[in-house]
């Protein structure tokens, strides 16, 4: 067994009477790509936000390299080596690309003064890497002037800048063209080759199947089923499995689901 990088234990989040995430146990190991899938409103983004420290869990525990972390928040999440591309991209659209990339983690010289020159050059370097080839777009370009895909690029660039151990991507390829999606995927492959772990969320099961080696199917706030690529066999069967999960009762044990899976070709 490889070392678990991040472990969630019985993580819950409720909004009033709505139970968005209801007791999730999950483990991401070093260097693996995990696909998190499930219907709209299943609780995927809520889980991601808790992992990123953007929202506080109602209960549950988060362990980093086997050790529980108290007072989990955004700063601790980042310190633990987790970078997140949020579903809403978390961009300040009236600000420049450079300011967005360094939002909350500005490069400073002394007394909190910004090192604008370095922020700019680092941002430019990142933009080149992520595939901004147009000279019209500089680190000083206001994010609001970018296309949807370009904005996504900025959010992804921000996440890869910090050499994180775990990169969480919440639907990073929605609104992207085919070539841009391929760009994101080749990035993920590079990151994986570099030993990073990735938690990938997506609705295009074919994509998720391609990129991930383990899948977590989320349904109504819990992880209903966890399968490896070998167990699932094909994207088709993974989709069939998701349907099974969605149509089964809330408390269908995973064993039974797995049994039903055998019938799917």
């Amino acid at each position: 067994m490889t070392e678990p990088l991040i472990e969630l234990r019985d993580l819950r989040k409720s909004y009033g009477t709505v139970l968005a995430v209801g007791g999730v146990n999950l483990q991401v190991n070093k260097g693996e790509v995990v696909g998190l899938i499930g219907d709209n409103g299943a609780g995927k983004s809520t889980l991601v936000k808790m992992l990123a420290g953007a929202i506080t869990p109602t209960s549950g525990e988060i362990l980093v390299r086997g050790k529980p972390v108290a007072g989990w928040n955004a700063a601790k999440s980042r310190a633990a080596g987790i970078e997140t591309v949020f579903q809403d991209r978390a961009l300040a659209v009236q600000q420049t690309i450079a300011r967005n990339i360094f939002m909350g983690r500005e490069i400073t010289t002394f007394g909190g003064l910004l090192n604008l020159g370095r922020q700019r050059s680092e941002a430019l370097h990142l933009m080149r890497e992520i595939g901004f080839t147009s000279n019209a777009v500089t680190p000083d370009t206001v994010v609001g002037q970018l296309s949807g895909g370009e904005r996504q690029g900025v959010a992804i660039a921000r996440a890869i800048y910090y050499n994180a151990d775990l990169i969480v991507l919440d639907e990073p390829t929605t609104a992207l063209s085919l070539t841009e999606t391929e760009k994101v995927f080749s990035f993920i492959r590079t990151l994986r080759a570099g030993g990073r772990s990735i938690l990938f969320i997506g609705h295009n099961i074919h994509h998720v199947f391609d990129i991930a080696e383990r899948f977590l199917i989320m349904d109504r706030g819990r992880i209903a089923l966890a399968v490896t690529k070998a167990q699932a066999g094909s994207a088709r069967r993974l989709i069939a499995l998701m349907e099974e999960v969605a149509h089964s009762g809330e408390n269908t044990p995973p064993v039974e689901l797995a049994a039903r899976l055998k019938g799917v070709q």
Partner: peptide, 21 residues
């Protein structure tokens, strides 16, 4: 200055600023 940069970000999109720590 860092303070000014954060004033801009919070005024622009407080939710994003919060997600960025």
């Amino acid at each position: 200055h860092r303070f000014g940069a954060r004033v801009h970000c919070v005024g622009d999109n407080p939710e994003s600023a919060r997600q960025m720590g």
